[in-house]
Design a protein around this nucleic acid. Structure first.
Lengths: 406, 406
DNA sequence: ATATAATGTTACGCCACGGAACAAAATCGG
DNA sequence: CCGATTTTGTTCCGTGGCGTAACATTATAT
C-alpha cells in the first residue's frame, strides 16, 4: 500500500499500459531467455496476439532479437527470443583510491577491453585522462557495436540524479560535478553512482540466482572503509540527499577506537581492511596512526589472509575478531532492515571460509526472530569485478526498469 | 529506477490508466479540499473533460461529494469537491498491555464513541469482549453511517497480510490469528498492524503538514519498549516476515545493561520508560528487576516528567540521560536511513522541551553529513491518540493508495 | 447589451487491450 | 502418403478511455 505523492506524481496516459507491459515482457525475456512468444503469453496471461504486437515493436527497436527455431515434442516449432546485449556497448569506469579502471563492455557485463591507470586526484585531470582513453577504446573497437553510455563508480557519496560527487574523502573530492564533466567530454550520457550501491545494482540485475528474485537485500562492501547499498522493493534506498545506507558508522562501542568519521567505536573502525591489518600488527586502531602502521609494515589485507591460510595464529585471530564485529554489524542490518539476503564484498570475502561460521553464529545469537537468525549471508569475491559490472548496469538497467507511475 | 519482479508482477490492463488517474484525483481532493474540477484539471495537467468523467464516477460511488459553489473574481463560479468522510465509519481498536480501547469514528479519524476496558490476555476472550462492545457501539450509532471495516493495532510483530500476530511479548501472544477471529466475529473486513507502523501510517495519511509531502520518515515510539515504523517512498518497510524496523535493539554498548531481547546495551534498555524510571530510582537496569523496582516505587514515566518539571534534579538528570541515548539511537537512524523527518511518540514526548536540545546536539555531533545533522525531529504528544488514528487509517487508506502496477 | 473570462459538459478520433478466428508448421496414426 | 491433432504465431475487430476540440453555462466588466 503506497501513498501517492501529490506534489510529484506521474499521470497515466493512453500509452501507459503498453509501456508497462512492454517492460514486463522485456524483463521476462531477460530472465528466461531463450523464450518463445507462446511462453511469454502464458507467463503474462495475455492473448498471444498482444505478444506478437509488442515483440514486433521490440524487434524493430533492436531491444530483442530472434534466434533459431528449436525442436518441440509436437506442433509448430517455437521461435526463440533473446535480449540483444551484443553490440550494445557501455563504458564502465571504476575510480578507486589508487587506480582507475576503464572498461569497454557489452550490456551483459562481459568485457571487450579493460585498462587501468593511477588515479589522478585532480578531477579535471582525471576527466581528461579518461576522455583520451575512452576515445582510443572506442576507436579501436568501432566494429564491436554502438556505445550507449558511460557508467562511473566512485568511492563516496553521489547525487545520482545530477551526477555530482558530493563527498569522496578517499579522493579528497567535495561537490565535484563529475557527471556533467564526463558527459560533455565524451559526448555520451553519463551515470555516476556510489560504489556499494553500484555493486548492489550489479547483484540485482546481473546476479544469477536460481529462480528467486532479489528485490530486498543489502550489499556490504568491506575495504578501506565499510559501505552499504540497500535495496528495498527493487529500488535503491537513497534517503535525503543520497546519504542513506551508512551502516559502516553504526556505533558498536562508546569506548571503542576513534573512527575517521569523528565518532568512536564505529563498525568501520573494527572491520575495515585497515583496522584488520592494524589488529594483526598488534597495534591499537586510530585514524591518525593506522595508515602509517600499515604502510610501514608493507602489509595488505590480502597478505594477512594469506598468512592466516598458512597457519599464522595472529593472522587467524585478527580475522576472527573482524568476523565477530562484522557479525555484530550485520545483525544490526538484519534487525533493522530484515533483508532477504546480505551480500558481503571486498577482499575480505576471499577468507570467507574462516569468517562465515563466526559471522553466522554472531547473527544467530543477536537476531530478534528465528527467521532473521537464518538470513542468508553470501560472499562476493573481488575477482567478479562487481564495481565495473555495476557501472555497466548504470547504463543498461534503465532500459529494463519499471515505468514510474502515480 | 525500480526492477520489475518477474516472479510476481501486475500487468497493465485497459482499465489501468483510469485506476491510476482516479487515485491521483482522489488524493488531490483529499489534500486540497475544497477544490474545483477546473483546479484539478490544472494540477493534473489534463483536459477538463476527463476530470468531469472521473468526478461523475466518484460521485456516483460516494467517494466524493459536491459542496456549495463559491465566489470567484470573474466567470462561472466553481463547484467545490470534497472527499466523503462523514458517514463512512471504521472501528478502531488499540490493544495495549493493560487497557484496550475501542473507538467508532469516521474516515477523517474523528471519534464518535470511545470505550476502554482491561485487556484480556486470552485472545479468544478478548475477541469475544471486543465483539460485544462493537455490536453495541454499532447499534447505538446506527444512524451515523455505514461501518466499512475494523482496524486493530497491537504491540508486537504482525503479518499485516494475513492478520496474524506473530509475536507480542507484552501480551504473551505467539502466532495468534487475530485478524480472522475478529473478522468472523464482527463480520467486517479487519486489518491488523503493529503499533509503531500504525502510528507512522497515521502521520503519513492524517498528519497536517504545510505543503510538504511526508513519504520518507521514521516514527519512533518510546514506551515500555522502543518500536519504530519506517516509511520509504510512501510505503512501510516490512522486510522478510514483517520483522523490519527494530531499531529499539540496536546495540549501543557491549558492556551496557541486559535487555529483554537477550542482548546487551540495546537502545531500548537505555531509553524505554522502564529504563528511565529505573534510572530515576538510582538502580541499575536489568530485565529481571526493572519491573519490580518500578512497581514497588509506584512511579510512572509521567511522574518522573512531572517531578522534573517541578525541579527534581534527579528526575531531570534521568531524563537528560535518556535524551542522550535516544539521540545516539536516532543518529543511527539518521545515518542509515537518512529520513526527511523523525517523529518521536510516547509519553516521553510530553517532556520534549527538556529533551530536544540534547537530542538535537547528539544527532548533530554524530551525523555524517551537514544535511543529516539537521534532520527534523518532532514530538507527537500522547494526547493525539496516534494508535487509534492509525487503526482508522488501516481501514481508510487502502481506498486512497496507489494501484500497484508492474 | 455585449465582450470577456472562467467553469464545466459533450462529442469524436485513436491507441491499445481483449477475445476470437485463422494461418503456419510440426508430429501422430492409419 | 494423407488427414487429424497439437502447438505456435498472426490477423481482425469490438470496446474502453485518453486526448483534443468545440460547446454550454455563468459570472464580471465595459
Amino acid at each position: 500500500m503506497r501513498k501517492i505523492n501529490t506534489r510529484s506524481f506521474v499521470r497515466a496516459t493512453r500509452a501507459t499500459p503498453r509501456e508497462v507491459n512492454r517492460q514486463i515482457l522485456l524483463n521476462l525475456v531477460r530472465e528466461h531467455e531463450p523464450i518463445s512468444r507462446a511462453d511469454l503469453a502464458r507467463r503474462m496471461e495475455i492473448a498471444p496476439g498482444m505478444v506478437t504486437s509488442m515483440v514486433v515493436e521490440l524487434l524493430a527497436e533492436g531491444a530483442l532479437y530472434e534466434g533459431a527455431t528449436i525442436d518441440a515434442p509436437r506442433g509448430r516449432r517455437p521461435q526463440m527470443l533473446f535480449v540483444r546485449t551484443r553490440g550494445r556497448l557501455a563504458i564502465s569506469i571504476d575510480v578507486r583510491f589508487r587506480r582507475t579502471f576503464v572498461m569497454l563492455g557489452d550490456f551483459s557485463g562481459t568485457a571487450i577491453a579493460l585498462e587501468a591507470f593511477d588515479t589522478l586526484d585532480d578531477p579535471a585531470a582525471l576527466v581528461a585522462e579518461i576522455k583520451s582513453r575512452v576515445a582510443r577504446l572506442l576507436a579501436h573497437n568501432a566494429d564491436a557495436g554502438h556505445c550507449e553510455g558511460v557508467g562511473v563508480v566512485v568511492p563516496g557519496m553521489v547525487d545520482s540524479v545530477t551526477g555530482r560527487v558530493l563527498n569522496a574523502p578517499h579522493l579528497g573530492w567535495r561537490n565535484v560535478d563529475l557527471g556533467s564533466a564526463l558527459s560533455s567530454a565524451i559526448g555520451l550520457p553519463t551515470f555516476v553512482e556510489n560504489a556499494p550501491i553500484a555493486c548492489a545494482l550489479a547483484q540485482m540485475w546481473l546476479g544469477k540466482r536460481d529462480g528467486t528474485e532479489l528485490t530486498d537485500f543489502v550489499y556490504v562492501n568491506v575495504s578501506d572503509g565499510v559501505g552499504t547499498g540497500v535495496v528495498v522493493n527493487g529500488q535503491v534506498l537513497r534517503g535525503r540527499r543520497n546519504t542513506a545506507g551508512e551502516f559502516g558508522h553504526v556505533p558498536l562501542n562508546p569506548d571503542g577506537p576513534d573512527c575517521y568519521c569523528g565518532g568512536r567505536g564505529c563498525l568501520e573502525a573494527y572491520v575495515s581492511d585497515l583496522a584488520t591489518v592494524v589488529r594483526y600488527l598488534g597495534k591499537e586502531f586510530s585514524p591518525e596512526t593506522a595508515r602509517k602502521h600499515v604502510q610501514r609494515s608493507g602489509l595488505t589485507i590480502a597478505d594477512v589472509i594469506a598468512r592466516a591460510r598458512h597457519g599464522d595464529r595472529k593472522a587467524v585471530c585478527a580475522l576472527e575478531e573482524t568476523a565477530r564485529y562484522l557479525g555484530v554489524g550485520l545483525s544490526v542490518i538484519v534487525n533493522t532492515l530484515s533483508p532477504s539476503l546480505i551480500c558481503v564484498g571486498g577482499e575480505i570475502a576471499e577468507a570467507w571460509g574462516m569468517l562465515e561460521p563466526i559471522i553466522r553464529k554472531t547473527i544467530a545469537s543477536r537476531a530478534l526472530t528465528d527467521n532473521a537468525a537464518v538470513t542468508p549471508v553470501i560472499p562476493e569475491m573481488a575477482t567478479s569485478e562487481a564495481r565495473l559490472r555495476g557501472a555497466t548496469v548504470l547504463v543498461a538497467a534503465p532500459l529494463f526498469a519499471a515505468p514510474s507511475i502515480a
